[in-house]
Simulated scan of single mutants.
Amino acid sequence: MIKNRHNTIATILVLLFGCVLFFIATDGFRAFTAETARVNQLMEEKPVFPDVTLEDNKGRKYPISEFEDKYIFITFLYTSCATVCPQLEMNMAQVYDLLPRKYIGEDIVFLSISFDPTRDDPATLETYREAFNSDGETWRMARIPNQAELDSLLEKFGVIVIPDGLGNFTHNSAFYLVDKKGRLIDVMDYTEIEEAAAKVTSILENEAGV
């Protein structure tokens, strides 16, 4: 009987210890994966878009303040990607089409940023723009030529980019929403198209007092 009691106590201690480890590993039960934990942290920190110089599909160079007083709906990609990036951009196009026209260009712009600036020059970005029927104005394709500036942005926004040595990258993918002050306010699942469009529309309508 004493042995059974000891076994019971030991089992309880193992379970408690396991719960503590699970709590720590899942960021307080809020995250079951590293990606979810990363998004949770971003939502708490709400980092500001760093000072970088963008070069778009038309070869124009400007800071992020080009879009001052507008929300920015962002994706990160590289044009040589044959896996998730085409789907990411097709989904972005659907979000674009689902938003009320009156907000496009006036209150929100779309921006696809390449993390492969060496290969993704303006001409390549222009070809990519055409493939997804973006207008190059309210939805632009851009790169950040300065690698240090690019790295700073990727780090602040929790974008993981790992080169495989063969010209490809392993990377996470999401929709990122930056507010009118340049602060990241949401990271959305890129596969949840209607949900993302509804969330952005709600934000725009609330600000407009609709």
Rank of each mutant, 00 (worst) to 15 (best):
F169G: 00
A10I: 06
E192Y: 01
T79I: 07
A131S: 11
V178Q: 02
F175R: 05
F17G: 15
Y96T: 01
S114C: 03
P86R: 06
L154D: 05
F22Y: 13
R101V: 10
L154W: 10
L177K: 02
V159S: 10
K58T: 09
S114F: 00
F73L: 15
G165I: 03
I193S: 07
A142T: 05
L15D: 04
R129W: 06
V187E: 03
T124W: 00
P50G: 10
Q41S: 13
I72W: 01
N7H: 10
R129D: 03
T170L: 08
F32C: 09
F23A: 14
R60E: 06
Y128E: 08
G165L: 00
N172F: 04
V14T: 09
Y128G: 04
M43F: 13
K70M: 08
V187Q: 01
T191D: 15
T191K: 11
I12P: 07
A37W: 14
I162L: 15
T75N: 15
L154K: 12
L88G: 08
P100R: 06
E155W: 11
S65L: 08
E89R: 10
L13I: 15
R101T: 13
V200M: 10
I74G: 03
K70R: 13
D51T: 12
R60Y: 00
F132K: 03
Q87W: 11
V210L: 14
N7E: 03
A93W: 03
L166Y: 14
F22G: 05
G28W: 01
V84W: 01
S202P: 06
Y103F: 11
G105C: 01
I12Y: 00
Y71H: 04
V200E: 07
T170S: 11
N4E: 13
M43E: 12
R30G: 13
I160E: 14
V39E: 04
K181G: 14
V20H: 04
R38V: 14
T75M: 09
F169R: 05
D97S: 12
I104R: 08
T79W: 02
N4Y: 11
Y62L: 02
I9Q: 07
A93I: 04
Y96E: 00
L42D: 11
S173T: 09
K181W: 05
F175D: 02
G136M: 05
E130F: 10
E207W: 00
R143W: 08
R30T: 13
P86N: 01
N57S: 14
V20C: 09
D51Q: 11
K180I: 13
